[in-house]
């Protein structure tokens, strides 16, 4: 089971002075259970790309298959697709509208045709999994803090029990603590429920720590599509399109240049620390000489 994109193109405002090609011949296969990061500069087409995955946008040309079915076929139910491929937009807290948090989270499950009780149960589960304290359930969503609002909005999508969860810049505008909270939450969903997660971001740091595969978008086309390790190997090319590898990549490369035998392929701070400790242990044993 997977989502397959075959030569997908998308053009905004075709035949006008404002014509923009947002996607160029995108071919992708998104297999079940993967944790994928989509990275790109502003305007690289990453938001456009993910809106194709649940059929909110229709490709100008090309085909998308969900579990082998063409989603643009006449008899394909796009609403069903949207409940199976959950999409959390950028600043999702702007979509809250109900009088209580609980009702707002019930909106998705109710649209799926579930009974009031079932929808309530789903909402309860979802709110608990995003860590909302129970005493807030019946308050207005507009009284919450920014980070809390965002968690409620994410719960609104989780309550639909999607098989694929897509998050568009879920950490934008949050402080470091809020950012880690959201990302840890997403990682936990991936681990516990085994759902496919697609995380859109422009921050390599965020993505490197969690994902197993990175898709780099540049000017509407897929530039790299590989494991973080392989993608960060091209850190010079990433720079040329306005992206940067995680800071540890730079640190490790510089240390190696100066003669310390570290592993330049470390992508997270933890890996870097380990490699650094090993290298330093090597110095103690007198294997290298270092000019810092």
């Amino acid at each position: 089971m997977s989502i397959i994109l075959d030569k997908v193109n998308y053009v905004y405002s075709e035949e006008t002075a404002y014509r923009i090609q947002a996607l160029r011949d995108v071919n992708l296969e998104i297999r079940d259970g993967q944790f994928i990061g989509v990275i790109g500069h502003t305007g690289s087409g990453k938001s456009t790309l993910i809106q194709h995955l649940n059929g909110l946008m229709k490709a100008t040309s090309g085909t998308i298959y969900f579990n082998g079915q063409d989603i643009y076929a006449d008899d394909f139910d796009l609403r069903k697709l949207r409940s199976r491929v959950g999409l959390v937009f950028q600043y999702p807290e702007h979509q809250l509208f109900e009088t209580t948090i609980f009702d707002d989270v019930c909106f998705g499950p109710k649209n799926q045709g579930l009974s009031k009780e079932e929808a309530g149960l789903r909402a309860f589960e979802a709110l608990r999994s995003v860590g909302m304290p129970e005493e807030l359930y019946y308050q207005s969503p507009f009284d919450l803090s920014g980070g809390q609002k965002r968690r409620v909005a994410i719960a609104g999508v989780l309550a639909m029990k999607p098989e694929v969860l897509i998050l568009d810049e879920p950490t934008a505008g949050l402080d470091p603590a809020g950012r880690d909270e959201i990302l840890d939450l997403v990682a936990r969903m991936h681990k516990e429920r085994g759902i496919t997660v697609i995380l859109v971001s422009h921050s390599m740091e965020d993505v490197a720590k969690y994902v197993e595969r990175i898709i780099v978008m540049n000017q509407g086309a897929v530039m790299f599509d590989d494991t973080p390790r392989e993608v960060f190997r091209h850190y010079k090319e990433l720079e040329s399109v306005g992206l940067a590898a995680p800071q540890v990549t730079y640190l490790m490369h510089e240390l190696k240049e100066r003669g310390l035998l570290v592993n330049t392929e470390a992508t997270t701070v933890e890996e870097a620390r380990q490699s650094l400790m090993e290298a330093l242990a090597g110095i103690d044993a007198g294997h290298t000489d270092i000019h810092v």
């Binding site: 809106q51 909110l56 409940s83 999409l87 937009f89 702007h94 979509q95 909106f107 649209n111």
Partner: peptide, 13 residues
């Protein structure tokens, strides 16, 4: 447009 899409993603019709 954005809110409409966000609600459609939650199954709104």
């Amino acid at each position: 447009d954005k809110i409409m899409k966000a609600q459609m993603a939650r199954g709104a019709d």
